[in-house]
Nucleic acid binder design. Structure first.
Lengths: 132, 132
DNA sequence: CCTTGACCTTCCAGTAACGGGAACCCCTAT
DNA sequence: ATAGGGGTTCCCGTTACTGGAAGGTCAAGG
């Protein structure tokens, strides 16, 4: 199976698949003409990576998860730890973004949005934190 | 005022301030020895930038906002538009992250996290989307 | 046999917004 | 004179790719 078929089957762009090989996440064989050849195992790995990335895991996490996945003697605690850490980071990001959203919502609501210069948004950005 | 004082006063690292000059966000004068000299105006700009960045505005947005801030003939509608667009992007990010959080929470809950290999998290990452 | 077009390959540059660190200059105090 | 704590420029590294150039490969058609 060539790269474009692997791309279609995994939902990953061919460019991304090449990149994953570059950084050592997958190791497809090569046929005599130099083309990458993707085995069923490679396809499983690509699908795994696509799903892990969709859940926001970093490439480094993906590398660890993939190794655990292929290790039949793994401890599920190791997997869970990675997932928990990642979950914590996501929750932090959500909290940060939510705070921004709340502030921005207030600001957007308070701005008339007309052709006049007066603007609470800019006023807020100009003001010291204490007065916001 | 030298860069380290400007950094302390604005809460931005000196590196970041140099970077902002590099990309043309601010234009501090130089004294004869080549040191950057920060005026009150520069400080106001830095504080403005620090606050806008803290709200998640991109550097490009900051550039626009700064220009509007300095333009006494601005229309508040222009400011509001930038803020609204940014708010939309934040809400999309929150939605994406929340979906990840929900899935991850389920997975983490379902994994025993012991020394045995059986792991619902890995199972889920191995499985096609339909079965998740 | 030659060409065309769709593949495939490698390699290089760019993205956002800095941070680290090297190599070097400036100023003040001892 | 020297030590230290400023400052300066410049270049590389970060994340996870994406775009594009230059060129090899392959199957089909004239």
């Amino acid at each position: 199976m060539n790269i474009s078929q692997a791309a279609t089957a995994s939902g990953l762009p061919a460019k991304t698949i090449r990149y994953y090989e570059d950084i050592g996440l997958i190791r497809p064989k090569r046929s005599t003409n130099g083309y990458r050849t993707f085995s069923d195992t490679n396809l499983h790995q690509l699908n795994f990576l696509a799903r892990a990335r969709a859940l926001g895991f970093s490439i480094d996490d993906c590398r660890s998860l993939l190794a655990l996945w292929e290790d039949n003697a793994r401890a599920s605690a190791d997997v869970k730890q990675i997932a928990k850490d990642h979950l914590s980071e996501i929750e932090i990001k959500i909290a940060d973004l939510s705070a921004m959203r709340d502030t921005l919502t207030d600001l957007v609501t308070s701005c008339d949005g007309n052709d006049r210069p007066n603007c609470p948004i800019l006023n807020s950005l100009s003001a010291p934190v204490s007065s916001r």
